[in-house]
């Protein structure tokens, strides 16, 4: 137990250099690299005087070291500055868009887990059979289908041809989000407001985006679950359970799967990066008003403070997830200590 505490403390401290490095990379990419935010923002033909004035205003004329320290101090206060284009703080803009992204990724993750883990376990149970090969093929092929194309095809099939699911946005035009919106998590907000029609509509809009993102990532989990299950199914306690006369289904999906889940859950942490990247593309395809779309809209508008802010939030999030995953892993597996 004392060892575990020491591990957690050390691991948390080690997150600091990681965050610093990530923040520095963002700084280097957005401020030091060639490409001048101010002149491109002003259209490239602005007179020198105007550009200089704007630079002075934004503090871009100060030495890089001063800018860097100032930038870190900004992040530490969680004040990400003001948008160059709109009269809005960057932090506010991000907070406004974040629930949509979290809602999408949460449901996508559930679909990934259910589809990936079940198919993987099923394939392992029927190892070297035709079904196994088909599931493995599914795993490889779905991994190679770009998430945005899968989204477009699902939109085409289920949205246009069959016309059973909406293809854009979080709510239909007849549902006013202002009647229930509180936290921004529409699934929770509609339920709390007791507006079940709106809840149904929100869920209806979630189906295609969540399946798009979820199915894309399920390939990795198929492979992972299958590999882990194959190892577990060889273990002595499985043979023992078999000998005790427990039904085969129960052994595979309850005993074995439970043991195979540990590495799978930690893999989930590593997939968060893929999930967020996929979310950006899914949001663009489905006009989903989340952080990814915010980032891209502001890139087109060349709103550098917002671009920087969104990327910082992603960086902080990644660092936090990797910390949490490592701690969970250490709790589960006592061999992992510093």
């Amino acid at each position: 137990m004392k060892n575990l505490v020491r591990y957690i403390v050390t691991r948390t401290l080690l997150t600091i250099p990681m965050v610093l490095i990530l923040l520095s990379i963002v700084f280097v990419v957005l401020r030091v690299m060639p490409g001048d935010p101010v002149s491109s923002m002003l259209g490239g033909h602005a007179p020198e005087r105007v550009i200089e004035q704007k630079k002075e205003e934004l503090g871009l004329n100060r030495p890089l070291a001063v800018q860097y320290v100032d930038y870190l101090w900004q992040v530490a206060r969680l004040d990400l500055g003001d948008s160059m284009v709109f009269q809005q703080g960057v932090t506010d803009a991000i907070i406004e868009k974040m629930p949509a992204t979290i809602e999408l990724t949460f449901f996508a993750m559930i679909i990934t887990l259910v589809v990936g883990v079940f198919l993987g376990a099923y394939a392992a149970d029927h190892r070297r059979e035709f079904r196994d090969s088909m599931i493995r093929l599914y795993g490889i092929v779905i991994y190679c289908i770009p998430v945005y194309w899968l989204g477009l095809m699902l939109q085409l099939i289920f949205g246009i041809w069959l016309d059973i699911f909406p293809i854009a946005g979080r709510t239909g035009s007849r549902i006013l989000s202002s009647t229930f919106e509180q936290s921004g998590f529409y699934v929770i907000d509609t339920l709390r407001a007791g507006n079940y029609a709106a809840f149904g509509d929100v869920m209806h809009h979630l189906v295609l985006p969540a399946f798009t993102l979820g199915l894309t990532l399920s390939g990795i989990f198929v492979r992972l679950t299958r590999a882990n299950m194959l190892d577990v199914l060889k273990a002595d306690y499985i043979v023992a359970a078999e000998a005790r006369g427990i039904t085969h289904t129960k052994i595979v999906y309850r005993h074995a799967l439970k043991n195979a889940m540990i590495p799978i859950l930690t893999m989930m942490g590593l997939q968060v990066a893929l999930l967020m990247a996929g979310a950006i593309l899914t949001e663009t395809t489905f006009s989903w008003p989340g952080m990814g779309r915010l980032l891209l809209e502001r890139i087109y508008l060349r709103d550098y403070p917002t671009i920087q802010g969104v990327i910082i939030v992603y960086a902080l999030f990644v660092a936090m997830v990797s910390l949490v995953v490592d701690i969970i892993y250490a709790m589960v597996d006592p061999r992992i200590r510093y």
């Binding site: 990247a277 980032l295 990327i311 992603y314 990644v318 660092a319 990797s322």
Partner: peptide, 12 residues
């Protein structure tokens, strides 16, 4: 390595 590749590529 842990940072989402696509986001980095978008920034670049």
């Amino acid at each position: 390595y842990v940072f989402p590749g696509l986001i980095l590529a978008i920034a670049f």
